[in-house]
Design a protein around this nucleic acid. Structure first.
Length: 456
RNA sequence: GUAGGCAUAGCUCAGUUGGUUAGAGCACCAGAUUGUGGUUCUGGGGGUCGUGGGUUCGAGCCCCAUUGCUUACCCCA
């Protein structure tokens, strides 16, 4: 049989031990903060029914969902006519009824509706699982990546929004970031802006365009707006809003002026102000909280606050985002349940920590002691020490008998094991084992008890 | 879906106007050291130059096709 070249699918990656240590450090840090704020972990299946996912992410989104082929002779059941037509979409529906999850939010909405009678509201859940997108991979964009989500459903209090800001601040501070911004906006403000220029129907075109401000500049935004049918008069009205300056308070008061004619816009300002009020009483450790009305992400289901987190230390897209959605569960038949949530981009945070050298030193040592020996006799002799060390919660390995001592030392070295115990003929006779500190290279003779005591 | 770039050892990459037997660093293996890693020295294994065709006396290098990877746009977070 011809051997195949080993490789993984495009946009997916292996994670080796050294990387897993670092990834777990990120996950554990984020999870511990989620727990501290009262969020409980759930998991949902890798696969959902296609009907759960399809149509929830827009037309583009549907194309990016990985579909899972039915089992068995799936073609036999397909309508003959569909096969003849060779229409991929209609055949796909017929031969695939399951799909890989595309995000954690929609499965969560499905979960909430399905388990509504077991859940105590407000329900605060977190979820750390991979998601899949059949996207074209590029920098910072993978086909399989992890999301770390925290969401609360069944509470419209703006305290939740404030707590999300605190969670971002606390988790990213813990991870060692020194300079990052949490940008906040409110969908109601965006609606208000659209209303003021009498373009409520074009709110999507409007926000998509101004979202690109820092990417394509004011001229680019104007050009795009003109292409989308906005007039010069509209743009003159928009300009001062887009180019808001000053601190958050100043921006808010200018906004209130600009949105004076829009009730919904003023409501958005009120909400932001309330959130700022909460944060004033619980000052942030590191994060800069900025009102940024060009922030328009995930427009399809956000209805209130919108968040985005960016590091200012390295050039990287956003490392987190979220917002409030008033009718997430509506599509599964449970109306009137409001929710809000945030997500950490673990893969991007990894890249940031790597670039800034912020992973804790020594995090890649797993085993603390390696016991080396020469033969079966030494192996048997070592077992009580092995067990004693492990009983004391010291990660210990016994190298299987039969290898050269050099080989065993290399193993310890490559695995970053800080201590080695050598058990040979002399040691077994005297009961004094050779104990070596691999960092300094210093060796001493100690009894088994002394070794346990020393490492404890 | 649109456009560009790249493809040479396990990894990162050199390779001159097209010219003998395609190189380096790292990694790996062995020895110096038959009970000692990391450091040092010596030696060694490893390549259909992505694949298929073409031009040429001669192709890693030029041309065409194809596959894979990658970057940007659209989109998405």
């Amino acid at each position: 049989m011809a051997s195949i070249k080993p490789s993984v699918p495009k946009g997916t990656r292996d994670f080796s031990p050294a990387e897993m240590v670092k990834r777990n450090y990120i996950f554990d840090t984020i999870k511990s903060v989620f727990r501290k704020y009262g969020y409980q972990q759930i998991e949902t299946p890798t696969m959902e029914n296609s009907s759960t996912l399809m149509g929830k992410y827009g037309e583009e989104g549907d194309k990016l969902i990985f579909k899972v082929l039915n089992s068995g002779d799936y073609l036999a059941k397909v309508d003959e006519q569909k096969l003849i037509e060779r229409n991929s979409n209609s055949v796909a529906v017929a031969i695939s009824e399951k799909a890989l999850r595309y995000d954690l939010t929609v499965p969560f909405a499905r979960y909430v509706v399905q388990h509504q009678n077991e859940i105590t509201f407000p329900f605060k859940r977190f979820q750390v699982q991979p998601v899949w997108r059949a996207d074209r991979p590029q920098r910072g964009r993978y086909r399989e990546f992890y999301q770390c989500d925290a969401d609360v459903v069944g509470s419209d209090s703006l305290l939740n929004e404030a707590e999300f800001i605190m969670i971002y601040d606390e988790a990213l501070t813990k991870l060692g970031l020194k300079d990052f911004s949490i940008k906040i906006n409110n969908r109601k403000i965006l609606s208000g802006i659209a209303q003021v220029i009498d373009k409520a129907d074009n709110i999507i075109d409007l926000t998509v365009a101004i979202d690109k401000l820092d990417k394509i500049g004011l001229d680019g935004v104007i050009k795009e707006l003109l292409e989308k049918g906005f007039t010069d008069a509209d743009i003159d009205k928009l300009k001062p809003v887009i180019l808001l300056e000053g601190n958050n308070t100043e921006k808010l008061s200018s906004l209130r002026e600009a949105l004076a004619q829009s009730q919904i816009g003023l409501k958005g300002c009120d909400e932001i102000e309330t959130v700022f009020g909460y944060i004033e009483r619980c000052p942030l450790q590191t994060a800069k909280l900025e009102l940024d009305i060009t922030l328009a992400r995930g427009l399809n289901y956000y209805t209130g606050a919108i968040f985005e987190v960016k590091t200012n230390e390295v050039n990287m897209g956003s490392i987190g985002g979220g917002g409030r959605y008033d009718d997430l569960t509506g599509m599964f038949g449970l109306k009137g349940l409001t929710g809000a949530g945030i997500s950490f981009g673990a893969d991007r945070i990894y890249d940031v920590l790597e670039e800034l050298n912020l992973f804790p030193a020594g995090s890649n040592q797993t085993t603390r002691v390696l016991i080396c020996n020469f033969d079966k006799e030494g192996e048997l002799y070592s077992l009580p020490l092995l067990q004693a060390l492990r009983r004391n919660n010291i990660n210990t390995e016994l190298y299987p008998a039969g290898a050269k001592i050099k080989k065993q030392m290399e193993y310890a070295n490559n695995k970053n094991i800080p201590y080695v115990v050598v058990v040979g003929g002399d040691e077994m006779q005297t009961g004094l084992l050779t104990f070596k500190d691999m960092t300094s290279g210093v060796q001493e003779k100690l009894t088994a008890d002394e070794i346990v005591a020393k490492l404890n």
